[in-house]
Design a binder for these strands. Structure first.
Length: 493
RNA sequence: GGCGGCGUAGCCAAGUGGUAAGGCAGAGGUCUGCAAAACCUUUAUUCAGCGGUUCAAAUCCGCUCGCCGCCUCCA
């Protein structure tokens, strides 16, 4: 039982061996705060949230750093458009990001540094690079000279000559090589700036991540994550800067999540098939979105569509319904701390007992295999089925049965905590889903309750015709009645 | 053109050498006055196609077909 992770750098799954035993350092590229986050950001952040949680669950003392890039061309452009200071834009979207991530149930990283709080560190690295001959100043800018770093492009597996051959790279006159990239940009009038040895300016994109990761995690650390699209140029450039400056390996395991497609098409602003997290959460429950993201492996592409989200919600409802049933049984009843003995249980109890015994090992096995959340969810669904069966077949709850139910309930809390799921009280979550659906029907809850009473009276009088009439009428309006020995409840279909 | 990935049931999706998880949808059954919910059973002799390696392949190798991503800001 050992964690294996797919490392983009080697293209293979490798056993995770921490740099410092018992500890794990992880840096994930956060957002450039110039706009609201879209569902691609949602996926990336949920994925790394799970990785963070799982590493912690696996016993590592994790330092998780996720930055805000709060100075960049796009932020400046946006500020100019609106006629406000860049800081206004950055702060607004930092706040929006925090709100979105909180709604998606993300755990807070250990540190969430901002690029602009590390300008001094950035300048220090650039000075080192210049001193070592890896960078050069040119008319107020500073560029990294890619030819001085032989390992350049080792992450993306490209080579310099071919990239230049098909070059869509503009040949900046200030650059010696078109592939050189900016470490520092001289500021134009009206732009935000910081004082530097090369005049007033601001950091280029990429260098802030080198500076912040080094500050909080050291020159070499375990994990660096981000979307696949960051492999080139962002991560490639980070490697070049950091390794050239420090003379040692930068990151040991590179992790990259796959893209989100929309209705099987690449998501892009130009296609107009672009959804912000806020737009999606107007329509779907945040936990449903998270569950949907976890239903596929993090490196695979995932297709966002109403149908797929609806299916995810149906699956999540199944689990929550099972948990709600357990909670109802456990509510107010004392449970024995003793483990039930198998001899005293019916066959479905023995099966459940076995599922309980294997749940954590199987869950861990799935997660240890490159964070295979889809497989982990499969394990949970099998447990749901065994639980439902046990509940359905058990009429009277003996102390042993209650203990078993309590135990399985605790395991759902434990695994749910790793996946960021099932934190809500199941009855409340289900009620929330019902309420959301109820917004789409044209009949009030009071009216439904009144009809249910009328129906049960009719049924008591054995007037089934009238009773069925009411049931069918409600069904036509999308209301599904659920009869049980305790009475009749309803839900929106 | 260069680099990389994918193709598993109606749909979504695990599975990297040992004989196809799970979810959704569907069908039959138990329950029910009849239903619904829940539960049970069932739905891929087969993993795009063709060859090869092997005692054994969805899994490894080669070729073909189809789809996609990156190479420009991007999670």
């Amino acid at each position: 039982m050992a964690l294996r992770v797919y490392n983009t750098l080697t293209g293979e799954k490798e056993h995770f061996v921490p740099l410092v035993p018992g500890k794990a350092g992880m840096y994930v590229c956060g957002v450039t705060v110039y706009d609201y986050c879209h569902i691609g950001h949602a996926r990336a952040n949920v994925v790394f949230d799970i990785i963070f949680r799982y590493l912690t669950y696996a016993g590592y003392d994790v330092t998780y750093v996720r930055n805000y890039t709060d100075i960049d061309d796009k932020i400046i452009n946006r500020a100019n458009q609106e006629g406000v200071d860049y800081r206004t834009i950055a702060d607004r979207y930092i706040q929006a990001f925090d709100e979105d991530m909180a709604r998606l149930g993300l755990a807070k990283p250990t540190v969430e540094p901002k690029a602009t709080d590390h300008i001094g560190d950035i300048i220090a690295i650039i000075e080192t690079l210049i001193a070592k001959g890896h960078a050069y100043a040119s008319e107020g800018d500073v560029y990294f000279a890619v030819e001085t770093f032989p390992a350049y492009l080792k992450l993306s597996g490209r080579n310099l000559e071919e990239m230049q051959a098909g070059a869509r790279v503009e040949v900046g006159e200030k650059k010696r090589n078109p592939m050189d990239f900016a470490l520092w940009k001289g500021s134009k009038p009206g732009e935000p700036w910081w004082q530097s040895p090369w005049g007033q300016g601001r950091p280029g994109w990429h260098i802030e991540c080198s500076a912040m990761s080094m500050e909080f995690l050291g020159k070499t650390f375990d994990f660096h994550g981000g979307g696949k699209d960051l492999i080139f140029p962002h991560h490639e450039n980070e490697i070049a800067q950091s390794e050239a400056a420090n003379g040692c390996q930068f990151v040991r395991y590179w992790l990259h999540n796959g893209f989100v497609n929309i209705n099987s098409e690449k998501m892009s602003k130009s296609l107009g098939n672009f959804f912000t997290i806020r737009q999606v959460l107007d329509k779907f429950d945040p936990e449903t979105l998270r569950f949907f993201i976890l239903s596929a492996h993090y490196r695979s592409p995932i297709d966002f569509s109403d149908q797929n989200l609806d299916e995810a919600q149906a699956g999540l409802e199944r689990i929550y319904a099972c948990l709600a049933a357990m909670d109802e049984i456990l509510d107010g009843r004392p449970t024995s701390a003793e483990l039930p003995t198998v001899e005293s249980l019916p066959p479905s109890g023995e099966e459940l007992s076995e599922k309980i015994r294997l749940l954590i090992p199987r869950f861990v096995e799935a997660m240890d295999d490159d964070f295979n959340t889809a497989q982990a969810l499969g394990v949970l669904f099998e447990t749901v089925r065994a639980s439902n069966r046990f509940l359905a077949e058990t009429g009277e709850y003996s102390p042993v049965a209650l203990s078993l139910i309590a135990q399985i309930r605790r395991l759902f809390t434990e695994t749910g905590n790793v996946l960021g799921l099932f934190a809500r009280r199941p009855a409340d979550w289900l009620a929330g889903i019902q309420a959301a659906k109820a917004g789409q029907i044209d009949i009030s809850a009071d009216e439904i309750e009144r009809l249910i009473v009328e129906r049960s009276e009719a049924r008591k009088a054995r007037d089934f015709k009238r009773g069925d009439e009411i049931r069918d009428m409600l069904l036509a309006k999308g209301i599904q009645l659920l009869d049980s020995p305790q009475g009749t409840s309803w839900k929106v279909k």
